[in-house]
Simulated assay, not measured.
Amino acid sequence: MKLAIISSIRTNNFNDERIMQKITEMWKEASHHLSKHEGVTYGVYHNYESDYKGDYSLSIGIEDNNGPSIIEIPEKENYEIFKVNTTEEHGISNAWSKIWHQEENGTIERVYSFDFEKYYPNGEIEIYIAIK
């Protein structure tokens, strides 16, 4: 799958005190480009330094082969899909906490290649985690 990248940041879940500000600003910047987009929007986690405790890149993208910056997500990856409870105020961060908990408990084994959040036009959100 090829995604045209709208905006990107580099951050860390635990060592970046500006993480929420960076993510909010990134989405705000991307919203101008996404205002007429009616398809699926992706939040792609990539360029992992190590595991979920290390630095990583987060990019916002849409399915498009013609963007100025393209990320190609390998089609052959195995993914575990987590549905986000969008009725919860912190549904996305709660879902990530569950993913990290499962990783700590050894119930999922991540490969840290490409993970992504898939934002559907109907408001549903799924998180795809690349696993071994």
Rank of each mutant, 00 (worst) to 15 (best):
K2S: 11
Q21K: 10
Q21Y: 02
G43I: 04
I92K: 07
N122I: 02
K2Y: 04
S113R: 12
I73K: 11
I129C: 12
G106Q: 10
L34H: 03
I9P: 04
G91R: 01
F116A: 07
G67N: 12
I108K: 07
T86I: 08
A95M: 11
N65R: 02
I81Q: 06
F116L: 09
I62Y: 02
E49H: 10
F14E: 12
E75P: 03
K22D: 04
I81C: 03
G61D: 00
M26T: 00
F82I: 09
E77H: 09
G123Q: 05
E124Q: 13
N12H: 01
R18I: 05
N105S: 15
S7Y: 11
E109V: 13
F14W: 12
K76Q: 15
V40K: 05
N78R: 15
R18Y: 14
F116N: 02
Y52F: 15
N78A: 15
F82V: 11
E89S: 08
S8G: 07
Y128I: 02
T11L: 10
N12W: 00
I23E: 10
I99K: 00
S7N: 15
H90E: 11
S59E: 06
Y119G: 00
L3I: 08
G61F: 01
K22L: 10
S97V: 05
W96V: 04
N47V: 09
I60M: 00
E38C: 01
I131Y: 08
E126H: 14
S50H: 13
V40W: 09
E25Y: 00
K132Y: 03
I6M: 12
